[in-house]
Design a protein around this nucleic acid. Structure first.
Length: 284
DNA sequence: CACAACTTTCCTGTTT
DNA sequence: TAAACAGGAAAGTTGT
């Protein structure tokens, strides 16, 4: 709706669409959703209504499409139906889902979030595209993002007993360092680009496959929908002409400041540097 | 108003 | 060939 059909720019990079889809949108044709054990396949219905078997299918699908070893997911923790699965909190996932918790949680949130389930493959993909491109109605303003982030953070901090505020935009540290005369640093327009990117990564509920962790512990991530992220960034800055071209120039300036490190040879891949804060799972 | 921080915009050239 | 990547240069925005 926003730019569809204007022909001026593609919201998505075509390479992302064709080859680098988010893990959970990977080719259905290759994911051997063979089972119609209960008449429907797991991706055709809302997770809420999955049987235990379909929960298992979903897990298996994630393993397959992400080329993960089965040991990444403790299947015994998921001997549950969809209703139970959907009631799991971030804490539950942190406890139960092993190293794949981030993937499982964000994927499930996405599936719950899209809320469109049809019976044909093309329709499924169409709804995916729609959701992922026309995110604005539910994505709303970045206020939504921040509010949701805050909520997510609250849950995370409860579950990890972390006392470290992950965010540097909403609130300032109050105890660590002796406060300067001014508690806030110079921070034009509220949030810096790298914080904006970080917050998308940390906010699975509102990250419909825009950016994905490549290596969570190393802080390596990849843009899946580069132009969509740029549009969102532009929205935050009230700049409708933002593009990935321009956004990426700002990203490159971060190399010198060591907020980002170069990742050579891989397009759309960046890595947080020593001066980027708040992205680690157990920071501080 | 000046200034600094942080982009944003534009551009030319290179790489994938 | 189209997208990305690289940076230089300069203009724009915003908080102090």
């Amino acid at each position: 709706m926003i730019l569809e059909g204007t022909g001026r720019m593609s919201i998505n990079s075509s390479t992302s669409l064709l080859h680098e889809q988010p893990s959970w949108t990977n080719e259905y044709s290759t994911c051997n959703v063979s089972s119609s054990f209960f008449g429907t396949q797991w991706h055709e219905i809302h997770p809420q209504y999955w049987t235990k078997y379909q929960v298992w299918e979903w897990l298996q699908h994630l393993l397959d499409t992400n080329q993960l070893d089965a040991t990444c997911i403790p299947f015994q923790e998921f001997d549950i139906n969809g209703e139970h699965l959907c009631s799991m909190t971030v804490q539950d996932f942190t406890r139960a889902a092993g190293t794949a918790r981030q993937l499982l949680y964000s994927n499930l949130q996405h599936l719950k979030w899209t809320g469109k389930y049809t019976l044909t493959y093309p329709s499924v993909m169409a709804s995916w595209k729609e959701e992922n491109y026309l995110y604005d109605s539910s994505y709303g303003s970045t206020v939504d993002l921040l509010e949701s982030k805050t909520y997510c953070r609250a849950q995370i901090s409860m579950s990890t007993t972390s006392h470290q505020p992950l965010d540097s935009t909403d609130m300032k540290k109050t105890q660590d360092h002796p406060p300067k005369s001014h508690s806030k640093k110079h921070n034009p327009r509220g949030t810096h680009l790298w914080e904006f990117i970080r917050d998308i990564l940390l906010n699975p509920e509102k990250n419909p496959g825009l950016i994905k962790w490549e290596d969570r512990s190393e802080g390596i991530f990849r843009f899946l929908k580069s132009e969509a992220v740029a549009q969102l960034w532009g929205k935050k800055k009230n700049n409708s002409s933002m593009t990935y071209e321009k956004l990426s120039r700002a990203m490159r300036y971060y190399y010198k400041r060591e907020i980002l490190e170069r990742v050579d040879g891989r397009r759309l891949v960046y890595k947080f540097g020593k001066n980027a804060r708040g992205w680690r799972e157990n920071e501080n």
